[in-house]
Structure formats: structure tokens, C-alpha cells
């Protein structure tokens, strides 16, 4: 094996990290503010919401599925959690009768709401056999409707201090959303690489027939994958509502697409069986750095979208070439 081959393999494996480093370097040259501690923390805090979603989406895509409902799930979880986390002295409370609840209640509500939506997605995919794209397109529409219905189209605002702390607080100088994202990333990584469930996800995405023949309970695993992805979208809703001190039914529009983009940039293949959590994290960071850097440079939001789209497609083209070469 020649040195050139090794270099190519190295690029294939770590190329995505190099892209991130190169981007950070380029941005820091163009804007003096970029590398400031405040700005960097700002980036990772912004990334953590999309990042949480993309962790679950990664599992879904490895299993050769897709989840379009994350943004809607986030909104439903946000309004429902917020409705159980409003400050006691607020006049326009959704449930004026109940006292101020401990923060664990909205946390559990957000996770539960996400899990329920995920279960519906998973059951639709596993039990009816309809394509995941269609199943989650359906929930994408309906769940958004549910969120609007529940909140009667209005924001659910003024949350308790401990609720807001989830989105705005710091521990040891690190924003809480970032810590939560890091923790969930670690848990998901362990799950994917060190549990039977993780092995089964790769197997289902890589060769569903082989998985079935080997005794993997494909249906049950699929449901679990979507449940977990839903739960993470719910958590993202909790974090976002906490940061903004409001849960709104119109929140998180197109977040699912950003999460899919992050996952895809991170090297998870839509043909199934390939993908990593590290990739999803780096992918989300790349998107965050890009957004932030372009903002700092004063690039218009319209151009930002165009650039983002181009980057997603380029990432997949490179990834496909990499996989084709191996053959």
C-alpha cells in the first residue's frame, strides 16, 4: 500500500475534522471576534439544539430511515413542557389552577411528548411498512397542528427560574445546553457502539434481511430507534423554550432539515449501515461555525442559505466518492 493510499484513507476518515479546523481557522482570520470565548460559547450553545436532534436522526438514518417530524415534535414538546413550567405569579397562565411545579415536571413532559411522537413514527414505519419518509411527513404535519391546537396558536411564556436555567444557566462556565448535548452525545455514542441495540441498528440499516434471518427483532428495534429520536427532539424543545423563556407552537420550523444536514455532513450514509455520533457532532458544529462566521462577516441570510445548501451536497458527493473508491 502506497503512501498516497494511506493519505487518502486518512482524509476519508478524518477529513470532516480537518474541514472543521480549517473553517475555524479561516473564520478567525476574517473576524477578530470569532475566537473570543463569548462567541465560541455562543456557537456551541446555538448548536446544541440542532445537535440534540441530530443525535437521534443519526440513529434513524443509519437504520436506513429518515425523520422529518423532529421540528414539529420540538414545538409540541416545547409548548406542553412550558405549560407545566409557567411561573406562579404570571397572570396569563395556561393552567391558572395549578401551583408552580418543580422543574422535573416539564422535563419529563418534554421527554414523554417526544417519546410518544417517536413511538407513533416507529410504529408506522415498523408495523405498516410504509416508507419512513411518508410516515414522518405525516407526523410532521399533524404534530405541528397538535402544537397549535394545544397552545391555541399562542406562545406559552414566562417560565419558572429553574426552567429557564436549563437554557440559560452555566455550570463551571459552560452553558447548560452544551453540557446536556455533550452528555446525550456520550450516551448515544455508548449506545450505538457498545450495546446490542446499537449493533442491531447498523445491521438493520446495512442489510435488513440478514438482520431478520439472524434473529434480530427488526420491528421492535425500529420502534425503539424512532422513540429515542423523538425523545431527543423533545429535549431539544425543552432547551429551546428554556433559553427563550417561551414555548411557541411555531418553533423549530425546518430544524429537522438542519439536523439531517448535520448528520449527513458528518458522514452518515442515507443508504444505511454507515454513520457515527462523532460525525453528527462535528457536522452540527460545522453548520454552527458556518452560520456564526457568515453572520460576523455580515453575509446576508439569503447567501447563507445558498452556501449551506451547497455544502450539504458537496459533503455527500465527497462521501459517495470515498465509498465508491473502496470497491
Amino acid at each position: 500500500m502506497s503512501g498516497q493510499m494511506k493519505f487518502k484513507q486518512f482524509l476519508g476518515k478524518y477529513g470532516i475534522y480537518l474541514v472543521l479546523v480549517a473553517m475555524v481557522f479561516a473564520m478567525s482570520l476574517m473576524s477578530p471576534v470569532f475566537l473570543s470565548q463569548d462567541n465560541l460559547l455562543n456557537i456551541v450553545r446555538q448548536v446544541s439544539v440542532i445537535g440534540l436532534i441530530s443525535l437521534g436522526v443519526t440513529l434513524v438514518i443509519i437504520s436506513k430511515g429518515i425523520d422529518l417530524s423532529s421540528g414539529s415534535t420540538l414545538a409540541l414538546a416545547a409548548v406542553m413542557a412550558a405549560s407545566f413550567g409557567q411561573a406562579g405569579d404570571w397572570a396569563a397562565k395556561m393552567y391558572p389552577g395549578i401551583p408552580e411545579l418543580p422543574v422535573i415536571v416539564p422535563i419529563l413532559v418534554a421527554m414523554l411528548v417526544g417519546t410518544v411522537v417517536g413511538t407513533v413514527n416507529g410504529a408506522l414505519v415498523a408495523k405498516t411498512g410504509i416508507p419512513a419518509f411518508i410516515a414522518t411527513l405525516g407526523t410532521y404535519v399533524s404534530v405541528r397542528g397538535l402544537a397549535l391546537l394545544y397552545a391555541d396558536g399562542r406562545p406559552v411564556s414566562t417560565l419558572t427560574a429553574s426552567y429557564q436555567y436549563i437554557g440559560q444557566g452555566y455550570i463551571l462556565g459552560i452553558p447548560l445546553p452544551v453540557l446536556l448535548f455533550a452528555l446525550m452525545a456520550l450516551i448515544t455514542w455508548v449506545m450505538l457502539n457498545h450495546t446490542k441495540f446499537g449493533k442491531n441498528i447498523y445491521a438493520i440499516g446495512g442489510n435488513i434481511v440478514a438482520a431478520e434471518v439472524s434473529g434480530v427483532n427488526v420491528q421492535r428495534n425500529l420502534i425503539k430507534i424512532y422513540m429515542y429520536a423523538g425523545m431527543l427532539a423533545g429535549l431539544a424543545g425543552l432547551v429551546l423554550s428554556a433559553r427563550l423563556n417561551t414555548g411557541q407552537p411555531g418553533m423549530g420550523v425546518a430544524y429537522e432539515l438542519d439536523a439531517i444536514a448535520a448528520t449527513t455532513i458528518g458522514g452518515t450514509s442515507h443508504s444505511g449501515g454507515i454513520g457515527t455520533i462523532q460525525g453528527a457532532v462535528v457536522g452540527a458544529l460545522i453548520l454552527g461555525v458556518l452560520n456564526n462566521g457568515l453572520n460576523l462577516m455580515g453575509v446576508s441570510a439569503y447567501w447563507q442559505q445558498i452556501i449551506k445548501g451547497a455544502i450539504i451536497v458537496t459533503a455527500v458527493v465527497i462521501d459517495m466518492r470515498k465509498n465508491a473508491k473502496k470497491k
Binding site: 449493533k199 447498523y202 445491521a203 446495512g206 442489510n207 434481511v209 440478514a210 438482520a211 434473529g215 449501515g273
Partner: peptide, 18 residues
């Protein structure tokens, strides 16, 4: 053949009963 292509030999052998 029914292997899961991008996983290792050992993961393929013990698939479903890790």
C-alpha cells in the same frame, strides 16, 4: 449471501445474539 457489509466479521457472526 447475507452479510451486513460495513460491520466487522465478528459482529456479523454474533448478530442478534451479541
Amino acid at each position: 449471501l447475507s452479510p451486513v457489509p460495513h460491520r466487522s466479521v465478528m459482529e456479523n457472526v454474533w448478530l442478534g445474539r451479541e
